[in-house]
Amino acid sequence: MTADSETATVLVVDDERDVAELYATWLGMRHDVRSANSGESALEAVDESVDVVFLDRQMPGVSGDDVLDGIRERDLDCRIVMVTAVDPGFDIVEMPFDDYLTKPVTRADLYETVEEMLVRDAYDEQIQRYFAMASKKATLEAEKNAAELDAHDEYHEVTQRVESLKRTADQTIGEIQDFEAAFGEFSGS
């Protein structure tokens, strides 16, 4: 990943060519961009040089969900952002993506999301999992009413997982700060 620089390699995947071209044009002003218009071509285009994937969830043939699974099975180190016009269901809790955007998506949404994904990549795996799960929780809260959330065990599960991952992340940050403080004392700083 290119966390130290502002330029990322981004893959835009959407079966609607106009949408993919628009996103690619916007992102191309700041980043190196590839695009794909099917799940099959997405799996061909993604490799270890890709930092962020914007992935349409609803595609004919090989769906975005299938592409997501394919990328994770290949153990590629990229952040994946699902982008869809379909309101998210509670199934997103178990999906291995990093963030979820509901269409319509603006240029600012894309820019901010790439920046956020690059920042997240600088963190260790535990903190990345916390951010991904917190994103899923926030997505559900934005798209569902309180009664729907309360009625689904998946929402309660994601809430518990966010709390658990936050405790772990806080502990990890504390350990890093303790290490930095000890190192500073050792080096005479």
Rank of each mutant, 00 (worst) to 15 (best):
R74I: 07
D75S: 11
D75H: 12
L76C: 07
C78D: 05
M82A: 11
M82W: 00
M82L: 12
V83C: 06
T84R: 02
V86Y: 14
D87S: 11
D87P: 00
P88S: 11
P88A: 15
F90K: 04
D91N: 14
D91G: 14
I92P: 00
I92Q: 02
I92F: 05
I92L: 07
M95Y: 07
M95G: 02
P96K: 08
P96G: 04
F97T: 00
D99F: 02
D99T: 05
Y100P: 02
Y100I: 05
Y100E: 01
K103M: 05
P104W: 01
P104R: 02
P104Y: 05
V105W: 01
V105M: 06
T106A: 05
T106P: 03
D109F: 04
L110S: 02
Y111I: 15
E112F: 13
E112C: 08
T113D: 03
E115L: 11
E116A: 13
M117R: 02
M117T: 00
M117G: 00
L118R: 03
R120W: 06
R120F: 07
D121E: 15
D121K: 01
Y123S: 10
Y123L: 13
D124R: 05
D124K: 00
D124Q: 10
E125T: 12
Q126H: 13
Q126Y: 11
Q128R: 14
Q128F: 08
Q128D: 03
Y130H: 12
Y130E: 08
F131A: 03
A132Q: 00
M133P: 01
M133E: 10
M133H: 03
A134D: 00
S135H: 08
T139Q: 06
E143M: 09
E143P: 00
N145H: 08
N145C: 06
N145L: 06
N145V: 07
A146Q: 08
E148S: 10
E148I: 05
L149G: 01
D150H: 09
D150R: 11
A151E: 12
D153K: 05
E154V: 08
Y155M: 03
V158Y: 01
V158K: 02
Q160V: 09
Q160D: 15
Q160I: 10
V162F: 05
E163G: 09
S164Y: 12
L165W: 04
L165I: 04
L165Q: 04
K166I: 04
K166R: 15
R167W: 11
D170P: 05
D170C: 10
Q171K: 15
Q171T: 13
Q171P: 02
Q171L: 12
T172N: 12
T172P: 01
I173Y: 04
I173W: 03
G174A: 11
I176H: 15
Q177C: 11
F179R: 07
F179D: 14
E180H: 09
A182N: 12
A182D: 15
E185C: 09
E185L: 13
S187C: 11
S189K: 09
